[in-house]
């Protein structure tokens, strides 16, 4: 009886191993394709029916950093990094401020604020891109990085739901005890709540830092023809346009790999915080 149970378990485990391996290959294959293509030495347009390059080379990577007249990859990379850093700091601060306020402070029309914020958060930002462009233009901010930082971080306060859920799970008794000890609400926020909220801080930092690396819609309309201020996503997208794809496809692959590496590393490192963030306070509660 026990033997057959073990056998059955082994068989089912074996099946699962096989299944998972196959599925992993399916999931990972396009990425492998991308990486392999980035090392191709032979001249090809687009993907092809083989994965392993006939001729291995680093040229595509080297060219990204040396041949910068048309495709100024290092500059774009730097731009994106700068934008991501600033946007990340501003977003994180405003998300934490808003969610802490909604979660732990009690004031008049708090409920109304939460509902309004919730509804506004439903509105996809790019629907208003033309208006945003002209608001920025009125402030004389188009075609530069500050505009992007503002656009990526201005609405961040609306994404308070997840971190509010997290703050909700921290026992109220902590605040009360601190208040009795004479701490102001400001001190409570900085000295007590924030240190306890590492997972949610990391989650917010992670999501707001990776955003600018992927968006190209807003970047496209704001940057227009100012190529020196392009972000990486916009630049890569441009390399796939009809005019460029024939000459730059391999460099596109190399560029995409280079963006993916740091983000993937970051993501894998911070995975557990991400999970805690996505599942909200639920996992803890």
């Amino acid at each position: 009886m026990i033997k057959s149970y073990k056998l059955r378990r082994n068989i089912s485990n074996a099946i699962i191993y096989v299944l998972l391996t196959v599925l992993c290959i399916i999931w990972i294959l396009p990425l492998v394709w991308l990486i392999m293509t980035s090392f191709r030495g032979e001249d090809v347009v687009y993907l092809n029916n083989y994965i392993i390059p006939h001729e291995w080379t680093f040229d595509n990577y080297i060219k990204l950093f040396t041949d910068t007249t048309v495709v100024n990859y290092p500059r774009w990379f730097l731009n994106t990094f700068i934008v991501a850093c600033f946007a990340c700091v501003i977003s994180t601060i405003s998300v934490l401020m808003v969610s802490y306020t909604f979660s732990r402070l009690r004031f008049k029309s708090r409920k109304k604020f939460i509902n309004i914020g919730f509804i506004l958060g439903m509105f996809p930002g790019f629907l208003t891109m033309v208006a945003i462009y002209y608001v920025l233009k009125a402030m004389n901010l188009t075609q530069n990085l500050i505009a992007l930082i503002i656009v990526y971080s201005a609405g961040a306060g609306l994404n308070f739901a997840i971190s509010k859920g997290f703050f909700d799970t921290i026992p109220r008794a902590l605040d009360e005890a601190a208040t009795i000890d004479g701490a102001t609400k400001n001190q409570i926020f900085w000295r007590i709540i924030l240190p306890m909220s590492k997972p949610i801080v990391v989650y917010t930092v992670l999501t707001s830092f990776t955003g600018p690396w992927a968006d190209f819609i807003l970047a496209k309309i704001i940057m227009g023809d100012a190529r020196d201020n392009y972000t990486i996503a916009l630049g890569l997208w441009q390399m796939l346009q009809k005019e460029y794809i024939n000459d730059y496809f391999l460099m596109f692959c190399a560029g995409a790999v280079l963006v993916a590496v740091p983000i993937t590393a970051l993501f894998l490192k911070m995975q557990k915080y991400y999970v805690e963030g996505v599942t909200g306070g639920a996992v803890k509660g």
Binding site: M97, T101, L120, V135, S153, G155, K185, N186
Partner: peptide, 25 residues
Amino acid sequence: LDQRYHVTMLSLPTILICLFTVLPM
């Protein structure tokens, strides 16, 4: 920083949201 801490905390995000979300909307 205490009784009216919510004003401090909400004012900056509210201004940004009004300008770049509500106004365009």
